[in-house]
Amino acid sequence: MLIVDTSGQLCPAPLIATKRALRETAVGESFQVITDNRTSFSNISRFLRDNLTGFSFTESDGIWTLTVEKTDSTGEITDPSEYCTTDIPHFSKGNYIIVFSSDKMGEGDDNLGSLLINNFIRATKELDLLPDKMVFYNSGVHLVSDKSPVAGQLQELEKMGVTLLVCETCAKHYSIVENISAGILSNMFEIAHAMSSAGNIVRP
C-alpha cells in the first residue's frame, strides 16, 4: 500500500499530497497519509468527507495516520453522521449530568437569561469532561427545538456522545414535538432514573 508521509509539512502541503495519492490510486485500492499536524489532519478529513471518500484514522503521540480507500467518485455516501463523528477525537465524559428545567439561566431579565443559557451550552462543548447526559424538561425543551439558537450546538454534543433526554410530556405541552431537533423523547421514569443515578447534577 502507498504510504504518504507528510510529517513536518504544513498546510496545504499534506492536502496536496493526499490529493495526488488519491489521483494515483486505482478505484478499490487504499493508501495511507501520515501527518503530525492537527490542522492538516482536520483539513484532510474535511476534504475527504466533502468528496465522499471513505477513510479511517488512528492517532498516537500527535501523529495521525489516515487510511483512505478510493471508491468510485459517483458512489453514494454511506451514512453522513458516521463521518461527522470521525473527526472528533475521543471526548471524555464526566460522572455528571446537566438538567435544564428552563430555557433561561438564573432569575432576572428574560433576554439576559436566554443569552446566558445559550452561552452555557456553547461553553459545555468546550469542557474537558463532557456531561454523561443532558436532561430537558418544562420550558427547557425549547432549547432542543429547531428554532433554538443552540440547536446546532446540542446536535454536536449529541454527536460527541452525550445523551440528550427530552421530556415528551413537556414537548407535547408546548406543541413542539415536531420541532425537536436533537436528543430523544423520553419519559419521566427514564429522567428520574438518570437524575437519581448521576454522580452529580449540574443545574445552570
Binding site: P12, L15, I16, T39
Partner: peptide, 28 residues
C-alpha cells in the same frame, strides 16, 4: 484542483457552513 487549498479556506468553511445552503452539484 491540485489540493493547494490553504488552511484559512477550511477555517472560513467552518465559519460559514451552518448558515449556508450548498447546492448538490457544486464544484468542490
Amino acid at each position: 484542483d491540485e489540493g493547494c487549498i490553504p488552511g484559512a479556506a477550511f477555517r472560513n468553511l467552518d465559519f460559514v457552513e451552518d448558515e449556508t445552503f450548498f447546492a448538490d452539484d457544486l464544484d468542490y
